[in-house]
Amino acid sequence: MNILILEDEPLVAKNLEKLVQQLLPQALIQGPLASIETTLTWFRKHPEPDLILSDIQLADGVSFDIFQELNLSCPIIFTTAYDEYAIRAFKLNSIDYLLKPIDKNDLKCAFEKFSRWQQNSPTELFSEQLRNLLHDLENRNVRQYKHRFTAHHQRAVVAVVDTRIAYFVREEVIWLVTTDNQRLITDYASLDEVEDMLDPAQFIRANRQYIVRKDAIESYRTHYMGKIELTLIIPAKEEIVISKDKAAQFRTWFEV
């Protein structure tokens, strides 16, 4: 059996070769190849291998570009340090993906899947693996952000959903100000505590005193000194200013 290794990190490639030799001593190992360019050149001179072990991030780009250009029929076991590529990998003849650092038992399981692939319909096996992958991803620990916040209104405790929040402000205590201009006292000890619970795609720490929700920002203008001044749909007691150092970060966040 011919196995081609695509890997741009020499130590990782050496370790992978060693694991393959231990698990499949009869295999003929080709490579390792470190880039898209060298891989494309290699395929112009060699027939397809029986199996490819491919890192996703190579020296000059992502290996997906190789397989999309060549339209290979041989199966692939992807190796990667990033889960984000996993779904895309399963659209490209992938029978498994392994997270780095590569574990010997994980590689052994991948080779066993390859053996089953040789005996079954590839489409059927890919569907099974994709279902398993989605199940794994759904059950991983995903950061959950808070969407309901309690605050005091007169003598009652009320819950405020995040879409009704205009901003949080620290004025001795932490106040929550709603989009209809209600000012409610919270029990939070600091803005740091509040910030940690909020979705950073929707809220930004403007400065030491304010956390602002994106949809509550009506407009902004850049001061001649480079800082940013915000105008909210609910006016604050004072001007909300973002420092010059955070201005570029704010503009990127606000445009998404």
Rank of each mutant, 00 (worst) to 15 (best):
M1R: 14
N2M: 04
I3T: 02
I3N: 00
E9M: 05
V12I: 14
K14Y: 13
Q21W: 00
L23V: 00
L24E: 06
L24T: 01
P25G: 01
I29K: 01
Q30C: 02
Q30V: 02
G31C: 05
P32V: 02
S35E: 08
I36C: 00
I36E: 00
E37L: 05
T38N: 07
T39E: 02
T41P: 08
F43M: 09
F43A: 05
R44T: 01
R44K: 09
P47M: 10
P49W: 01
D50Q: 06
D50E: 10
L51H: 00
D55P: 00
A59W: 11
V62H: 15
V62D: 15
I66D: 04
L70D: 00
N71E: 13
S73N: 12
C74Y: 03
I77Q: 00
T79A: 08
T80C: 10
Y82N: 01
D83R: 03
E84K: 08
Y85G: 10
Y85P: 06
Y85N: 06
I87Y: 08
I87S: 05
N93G: 07
D96N: 06
P101T: 13
P101K: 11
K104W: 06
N105K: 13
C109G: 14
C109Q: 15
A110E: 10
F111D: 07
E112V: 10
S115R: 10
N120P: 04
N120V: 06
S121Q: 12
E124Q: 14
F126E: 12
L130R: 15
H135Y: 09
N139G: 05
N139L: 05
N141A: 11
V142I: 11
R143K: 12
Y145H: 00
H147E: 08
R148L: 09
T150L: 08
T150C: 03
H152T: 05
H153Y: 12
Q154E: 13
A159V: 02
D162A: 11
T163A: 00
R164E: 10
Y167T: 01
F168G: 07
R170K: 13
I174V: 15
L176C: 11
D180W: 09
D180G: 01
N181R: 11
Q182S: 04
R183V: 03
L184Q: 01
I185P: 13
E193S: 10
V194I: 15
E195Y: 08
A201R: 14
F203C: 02
F203Q: 02
I204F: 03
A206T: 05
R208C: 07
I211W: 07
I211M: 08
R213M: 07
R221Y: 15
T222W: 04
Y224L: 15
G226I: 10
I228M: 03
I228A: 02
E229W: 13
L230G: 05
T231F: 07
L232H: 08
I233R: 12
I233P: 00
I234H: 04
P235K: 07
E239T: 07
I240Q: 11
I240G: 12
I240C: 09
I242A: 06
S243L: 12
S243E: 08
K244N: 01
K244F: 02
K246M: 02
A247K: 02
R251M: 11
W253Q: 11
W253M: 05
V256F: 11
